[in-house]
Every structure is written in C-alpha cells, then in structure tokens.
Design a binder for these strands. Structure first.
Lengths: 258, 258
DNA sequence: AGATTAACGCTATCACTGTTAACACGACGA
DNA sequence: TCGTCGTGTTAACAGTGATAGCGTTAATCT
C-alpha cells in the first residue's frame, strides 16, 4: 500500500536545485499541485472523498504538509474552491460590454448555472455549506461580479428595485435553481427551469425593453396556457370523456402549455 | 452537563415487563426518544454535533442501539428530518380552502421560509445535502404539498405555465432564498427578499386577478365550462395541433361545456 | 566561512467518527 | 428444562482532522 517515498523523488521536489534564485519557490508549486489533486478528488468522489490523508497520498506527500500550507482543512477547501471557480471563469469571456446590460446579466446567469451543473460538489461547497452566517470567499467573488452587472442595468436606468435586493434575488434564485436541478437525477431534470427562473426575475427586477407603453406585450401563448392548465388540472373530473379521450386530451393540453 | 444516565432509568426502558403483549413496545418509545434528542442536538450544534456517540449518551443509551433502530446514521438523520418537518407542519393549519388559491400558495411560501429560518440545520439537511440525484423523503413531502397548491391555482384557471415547471420554480426559489438568507449573518439579512421573490414568481406563474379584458378566463373554482370555453374561442390559434386534432378537441370541449 | 533560523519531510500520536463483532442477561416458546 | 431471541453493554476496527516532535536541509545573518 504505502510504499516508502522516502527516496528522492527527484521530479517532485527539486526545491534544493532551483530554489535559490527562483522567486517562485517550490512551496507554491506544491501548493498548486495539492489544490489540483484535491479538486480532482472532489470532482470524482464528492466531498467525502477529500480527506487530508487521501489528498496527501494522492499528491505524493503527507498530511501535515497540508496543514503547513493551508493551515486547516477549511483552508484547503477554500483554496480548491477558488481554484475551481477561477479556472471555470477563465475559460469564458469574463465581460463583454454589449449594448444591452440585461443580455450581459443573462450571460452571467447561464454561466453560473453551467458552472453549478458541471461542478456539483464545488457548487454545493460554495452555496450550500453548512455554516450559517458565513459565505466562502469564492461565493463573495461571484456575488461581486453579479453586482457589477446589476449596476450596469441600474446605470442604464432600467432597474426597478435597488441594487442590493436585485443582486440577492438573482443570487438566491440562481443557487436555488442549480440545487433543485442537482437534487434530481440527471435524466429527470427540467431544462426549462433556469430560463424560466431568469425570465421571472428579470421581469420583476428590470423594466422592459420596449418600456414605453405601460404594460407589455404579453405573449399570446400565455393567455392560452391558463385555460389549458385549468383543464389539465381537472382532467380526472371530465367524466363526459372516455379514459382514452382524457389521455389524448392531456397530451394536447401539455403541448399547448409548453 | 452530562450526568451519567447509566443507572436504571426505570421509567425509560421497561421492555422486559410489557414487551410481550403490548403492541407498542418500548422499542418505539426509545426510537422516538432518540429522534427527539438527535433533533435537539442538531438544532443546538449543527450537523457536526450529531454523532452516534453524542446522540446515544444524550439519550441515555449506547451507540449500537442507534444501529439496531435506524440501521444507519443516514436512517437516523432521515428520521430526525421527518420528525422535525412534521412537527413544524403540525403547528400550522395545513390547508385552508380560502377563496384565493394564490393566497394559499403565499401562506405555504411564508410557512416554508419560516421553517427554514427557524431550523437552519434541518433545512440544510433537507435541501442542501450533498448527494446529487437524490432528495430526502421529507423534501418530497413538502414538494407534494406545494404541488397541490399549484394544482389549485391551475384549477382556478390562473396558471400560465404547466404545473411541473411552476412547482419546480417555487421550490427552487424558496430554498434558494432561505439559503441566501442563512448564508448571511442574521443582522445583515434583507427581510424583503422572500416577499420580493414570491412576487416575482407569482407574476411569472399566475395571471392577474383582473386579466380579464379579453376573453379568457376566469373561472370560479368549480366551473369547468369557463376554461373550456376560453380554449374553444381561440381554437384556431392552436397551431401546435394539427387541423384534425383541433377539430376533435373542439368536439370534446363542446361536450365539456354542455 | 561559519552560525543561526526557518522550513521541510516524516513518523507517531491524540481524540473522535461511523460501524460492527462479541459477550452477558433476561424473557419467551418448545 | 433448554434453546432462542432481543436487548444492553463493552470492545474493537478502520478512518478522520489535527498536532507534536524528530532529523535534515535550505536560506539568511554576522
């Protein structure tokens, strides 16, 4: 099991060779290495798979090293969080000053949802950690990005509520949507949920594009959906229809409401 | 603090005496006792405070008893969850057939938010547990209650999206709002968040009281004819159906209204 | 250059966790 | 009466987070 790695492992820790004039010492490299390994374990096996010993042996070192570098297991997890979050953000264009700030917010929304679905364990660590009253630093960073996008909407004169409330609404709805999706097996998730949630939010938070004429356009579909849903809810009561007819009617009503 | 309860505790476990003919053996009583103790520990010290030994000694028994009664630590936690959730629901009027089903939904919303803020650890266990793809039974029970309320709105002809999506939206937004509140120290929480979130949702999900202006709607509870008539009046617009389907649908709607 | 300080890798250990095996004792049915 | 069964109890196993102390090695200071 535990082969003695007391030999040199020359490829792993050449700190003695280049440490003198190299500003970036081996410490930072080891730190980054441990973080990457821990992120891999987290993504592979969930939160329980990340133990100090597992991380240490997978990184080719020992548990106390983790404590020297990160102080705490929470410190390690925080580093993993920051690493995973920043690397995910690095792939995507961080900001594009499009004309429409609401489109920017939507892009950020989609990005966030995608991040949560792609990294469930990381996302749960960020937004569903058990400590009440505190939020990890990475979550604060994400919230800061969100706030700037909200501010852009406000600067365009299209925010109906104050910025703080808007940011909290979007943040809460986003994490809630991801959590709801994650809580359900992958093949039973409703892909409409994130978009529907965002539409609901943006209607409540921002003024319409067209602005102008008071109320809004209101899709024709929605007027049709209400009575269709009403019938669908009471399908079993329709005794004037046969069972087969009710079944077919249910399918049609579903098609109308979707 | 922890007085040794290793003495007889004669009122607690008279299993030997009445176990024979008493249908409700001391086993169930011990089970309930352990669940209550565990719930107390959970509420007091969070999830980490609930260890098998801590629960056992606080309940005046030993750790193996837990495994005999609950099989697993997850079993114990599930029992605690069900206990806490049901006792919270028991305090409140479970359903009141008010005239307005949206008011009912709002009442359920407030109840849920209040539950989350009053029992953070329990709520986190229900909606933020780390297992992806599975939801605890208590969460499913809460979702079932939500679904019936959504169904009442649909039956009143005031639901603009299908019931499944509406239920998921409300569920996700509710847990997200509670999580966002819990993640912030108590004195820095924005008390407007739950109401604002609900308003945003209800606007997206349900039609206004007035709506009205055109044809549709609205319907008192029992009237099946109103939604059927609304659909019938706009039959030609149903482009998601074929012409033949529209024809048959028209006949059925006629049968419903007669 | 030589001495000192700081960091490192490593082993061993502590208190605690979930979980299980094994034993002791009382009550029940055969 | 014996044997089985459920229960209470102890002890143990494999891991967990975290720390102390060891020898050694690198960097820094005088």
């Amino acid at each position: 099991m535990e082969e003695p790695q007391t030999d040199k492992t020359p490829d792993d820790a050449p700190t003695g060779g280049d440490g003198t004039s190299d500003g970036i010492s081996g410490r930072d490299r080891m730190r980054a290495h441990i973080v990457e390994v821990a992120a891999g374990l987290l993504a592979a096996g969930g939160r329980d798979a990340v133990s100090t010993r597992a991380v240490a042996t997978a990184a080719g070192t020992q548990a106390p090293t983790i404590y020297r570098l990160f102080g705490d297991k929470d410190g390690l997890l925080a580093a993993v969080l920051e690493y995973g979050f920043s690397t995910y953000l690095a792939d995507k264009p961080p900001l594009d000053p499009t004309a429409d700030p609401i489109m920017d917010l939507r892009a950020g929304w989609d990005l966030h949802i995608g991040f949560g679905l792609a990294n469930p364990a990381l996302f749960l660590l960020m937004y569903a950690d058990t400590r009440p009253g505190r939020r990890p630093a990475a979550a604060e960073a994400g919230l800061a990005i969100l706030r700037t996008r909200i501010r852009n909407i406000a600067a365009a004169g299209r925010l109906r509520v104050d910025e703080d409330l808007a940011a909290e609404l979007v943040q809460a709805a986003g994490s809630g949507a991801v959590l709801a999706l994650l809580a359900v097996p992958e093949d039973r998730r409703d892909p409409r949920l994130p978009d529907a949630m965002f539409d609901a939010l943006i209607t409540a938070i921002a003024t319409d594009h067209e602005t102008a004429n008071g109320r809004a356009v209101v899709a024709v579909n929605q007027d049709l959906a209400a009575p269709a849903n009403a019938l669908r809810a009471r399908l079993p009561e329709l005794e004037m229809l046969t069972e087969g007819e009710r079944h077919v009617l249910g399918e049609w009503l579903a098609r109308i409401t979707h």
